[in-house]
């Protein structure tokens, strides 16, 4: 107590003044404390940022700085793609791919949109599937699985090659380039390529004479044989109809006769059309018989 007394004699009154007391109490008010300790610094920061970036030049400078830093990171040699390797494609397709992709090598792997590359390669006709990936060492690997032509499709504007699903592969110049491929014709024949395939399988005994298939009216097939003979197949179940015709041929040598059209469109009433020349011969024969009898 005595020390305190002496100290207070030296220092004077230890009591806080009325206003400092009130100020302390004010500063201890919870909401005011929160406002002062968080609100004021945040507000000052916001004002400073706003003042700084209200200037167009400063905004541009910041953007430029950002771009520089971004480029300096993505253009590091570790991230660069230098080589594009295309595998699994024929030479023409490889050339097509290299032509169609708008990639100027070397390019950063960050700037490379692999999905877009995938999409563009898939957009090429002969490509069945493709795997695009960036491999270590800066290699962009494009692994292509090419479509194999299975049909030759004659259209008004030329010959097209189709694969076994009916998808377009490429244009063909002449039939003679692809003598082993079956020929089909008719608009929208590519949509019915499965039926055509099964008809061709069923028509294997006629292989030597088979010229091709014609898709008629967007609904049914004709089998065209050499010599202009036509087997008209029905829309429903053409394969069994064709098998029946082949069976008839085996038993009766139907196709070896002078029949130009075998119409199987109505199942209950197969119709044969005799060729013009045969009719003439028949007519001649009848005339001859008439003359003999006279």
């Amino acid at each position: 107590m005595s020390e305190m007394n002496m100290r207070s004699d030296i220092l004077g009154d230890p009591a806080p003044s009325r206003w400092s007391y009130r100020l302390l109490r004010l500063m201890l008010t919870p909401y005011l404390r929160i406002c002062l300790f968080y609100g004021v610094p945040l507000g000052l920061l916001a004002v400073a940022l706003w003042l700084n970036f209200s200037n167009e030049d400063r905004r541009d400078a910041l953007r430029e700085m950002y771009d520089t830093i971004y480029l300096s990171i993505i253009e590091r040699p570790e991230f660069m793609v230098n080589v594009m390797s295309v595998s699994g494609a024929s030479d023409t397709l490889t050339d097509d791919i290299r032509e169609v992709l708008p990639i100027d090598l070397p390019v950063s792997s960050f700037a490379l949109d692999l999905d877009q590359v995938h999409e563009m390669v898939m957009g090429l006709g002969p490509v069945k599937d493709v795997v695009v990936r960036v491999q270590s060492g800066g290699v962009l690997e494009i692994n292509v699985m090419e479509r194999t032509p299975a049909f030759l499709w004659r259209r008004a504007n030329g010959l097209e090659l189709l694969d076994e699903t009916g998808a377009f592969v490429r244009q063909a110049v002449t039939r003679l380039d692809y003598p082993h491929l079956p020929l089909i014709a008719g608009e929208e024949a590519d949509t019915q390529i499965d039926t055509a395939q099964s008809i061709l399988v069923a028509a294997a005994p006629l292989h030597d004479r088979l010229r091709g298939l014609v898709f008629i009216g967007g609904r049914r097939f004709d089998v065209v044989l050499d010599g202009g003979q036509i087997i008209r197949l029905p829309e429903q179940d053409p394969v069994s109809a064709l098998e029946r015709a082949i069976m008839l041929d085996h038993s009766e040598q139907l196709l070896a006769r002078a029949v130009s059209v075998i119409d199987l469109r109505l199942e209950n009433r197969p119709t044969l059309q005799v060729s013009e020349s045969a009719l003439d011969i028949l007519k001649d024969n009848k005339n001859m018989q008439l003359r003999q009898t006279e």
Partner: peptide, 18 residues
């Protein structure tokens, strides 16, 4: 009054509450 103020101010400071 001043003595009460002294005591209360330092107690409040210590408590950090009004």
């Amino acid at each position: 009054e001043r003595a009460i103020r002294t005591a209360l101010q330092s107690a409040q400071k210590l408590a950090n509450v009004r």
